[in-house]
Design a protein around this nucleic acid. Structure first.
Length: 464
RNA sequence: GUCCCCAUCGUCUAGAGGCCUAGGACACCUCCCUUUCACGGAGGCGACCGGGGUUCGAAUCCCCGUGGGGACGCCA
């Protein structure tokens, strides 16, 4: 049997880190077993769903490289199917009309809460053998409810949490179609997972409570029940629950903040899942390893520092051409749009070793292409009456040498020796003059990339 | 309140009864490298929530506590 998974977000906001991980796991599971990965947009909440959110989700998945084999399917475009199924259920007696108003339901809920009971529908419109139903009110349009079994237990072997059993007495009759006729989430999921032949439902932990109801509906429809794998939630860096108000950010924001999708993907893969001691691996490797057995059932706290470490790794090892393209974009945002490609590549080759963030990297090499603003404290500390003559002597010799890091380095040694000072007496003021700050890779290499003309000009600006 | 779930270093995790004096990674600390800052290398600090069982033997199995989380919508 072919494995079929799906990612079914509701388009009420951007794709956040939790959703991204769910999508990643579903995607990887399908890949692992040469199955199919389906994207389904659950937009039946007309009031909250927006086209912008749909686009944001698509963008997020595209940035991460999570491609789908089928879809995107939109539930709002499948209304006809749902309605047919509802009619069939009504006819079969597995669903019924309920004329309770919202107000009535609210009152019931409140009363039950007060009495310390679990709030639930009391079944007043549920047809039962020998039971006399009230006359339907004229002014209340009915909803459709699923006739949930009243006895026995619903159980499934959750692929991450193990066996879960829930008594049917805990379950009430869910509304499967609203008063306006539109079907609700719990129902659409059932119909879609069934009709789309989903074999493995991998989704957030917050759906555990919906699962027994969905299984009951699947059974009522005579549909095969898929396997379920419920992923625990991801907590913020501070251990708090992520929400729109607190720390939940779009995956696209990671792009803006200087993260490579490879790093985010690798990080997410290891958040709640493991493969022995393996920490660094690409998605191709991941797709050969991923399984549901090694998913942790407990919640995981997001750790930005570890993400940073992975980001550094991928900045160091990614394709230089791709990196240059990305950095050029970021430089342009900072006002540098004419960086010579060869110089940019060299600068990146030198600086990528020490960066853990793309924005930082762009900022680090900014000085190659435009005059830096010197740090006053560094100027004061390193450009002194003592060092100035040393630099001047050095600048003099720069005119005629071969422009290679080795040659520059040799001249530096020479100057330092004749002046009988230690190497930093020359290197440090040079850094400040050329870069604006006192920290950099080997200054000879920096100069080599900066170029003879620019180097001499920047030094001379301090000598005159 | 009711139901469901979870519990190993600060964090992510390995661990399927003896391989565990509990392993790896991030972070942190020390040292080395060094032209400054990084990178890198070598070390170090640091955990099985508590209590009962079961067993020759428990981080691993069971029960009870405790703590955390989730769900109880004509939201998804």
């Amino acid at each position: 049997m072919q494995v079929r998974t799906r990612f079914a977000p509701s388009p009420t906001g951007f794709l956040h880190i939790g959703g991204a991980r769910t999508a990643l796991f579903s995607w990887a599971y399908a890949k692992r077993f040469q199955g199919r990965f389906v994207l389904r947009i659950e937009d039946t909440d007309v009031a909250r769903s927006t086209p912008e959110a749909v686009q944001a989700i698509l963008d997020g998945m595209h940035w991460l490289g999570l491609d789908y084999d089928e879809g995107p399917f939109y539930q709002m475009q499948r209304m006809d199917q749902y309605k047919v199924v509802i009619q069939n259920m009504l006819a079969a007696g597995t669903a019924y009309l309920c004329y309770c108003s919202k107000e009535e339901l609210d009152a019931l809920r409140e009363q039950q809460m007060q009495q310390g009971q679990k709030p639930r529908y009391d079944g007043r419109w549920r047809p039962e053998a020998g039971k006399v139903l009230p006359a339907p009110p004229q002014d209340v349009p009915p909803v459709v409810r699923f006739k949930n079994p009243t006895a026995g237990v619903v159980a499934w072997d959750d692929l991450v949490k193990g066996r879960i059993e829930i008594s049917n007495t805990e379950l009430d009759d869910v509304i499967i179609a609203r008063a306006d006729g539109t079907p609700t989430y719990n129902f659409c999921v059932v119909v879609d997972d069934w009709e789309m032949n989903i074999t493995h439902v991998i989704r957030g932990d917050d759906h555990v409570n919906n699962t027994p109801r969905q299984i009951n509906m699947l059974n009522a429809l005579g549909a095969k029940v898929p396997e379920y794998a419920h992923l625990s939630m991801i907590l913020g860096d501070d251990g708090q629950k992520l929400s729109k108000r607190h720390g939940a950010v779009s995956v696209m924001q990671y792009d803006e903040e200087g993260y490579l999708p490879e790093a985010v993907l690798n990080y997410l893969a290891r958040l709640g899942w493991s493969h022995g001691d393996d920490e660094v691996f690409d998605m191709q490797q991941f797709c050969t390893w991923f399984d549901l057995d090694h998913i942790t059932p407990s919640a995981a706290q997001f750790n930005t520092e570890k993400l940073n470490w992975l980001n550094a790794h991928y900045i160091k090892t990614c394709d230089i051409g791709k990196l240059a393209q990305d950095i050029a974009k970021r430089l342009a945002q900072a006002g540098v749009s004419d960086a010579p490609p060869a110089q940019l590549a060299s600068a990146l080759q030198l600086y990528r070793e020490r960066a853990n963030n793309l924005n930082q990297l762009a900022q680090d090499i900014h000085f190659f292409f435009t005059l830096p603003q010197a740090n006053a404290a560094d100027v004061e500390k390193h450009i002194t009456p003592e060092t100035l003559p040393i630099v001047a002597d050095f600048a003099q010799k720069l005119q005629t040498i071969d422009w290679t890091a080795e040659a520059i380095h040799a001249v530096m040694n020479e100057v330092v020796t004749t002046h009988q000072v230690k190497f930093p007496k020359l290197a440090m003021p040079l850094r400040v003059m050329l870069i604006g700050i006192a920290q950099s890779p080997s200054i000879d290499q920096v100069m080599m990339i900066l170029g003879r003309e620019a180097s001499i000009a920047r030094i001379n600006a301090y000598l005159s």
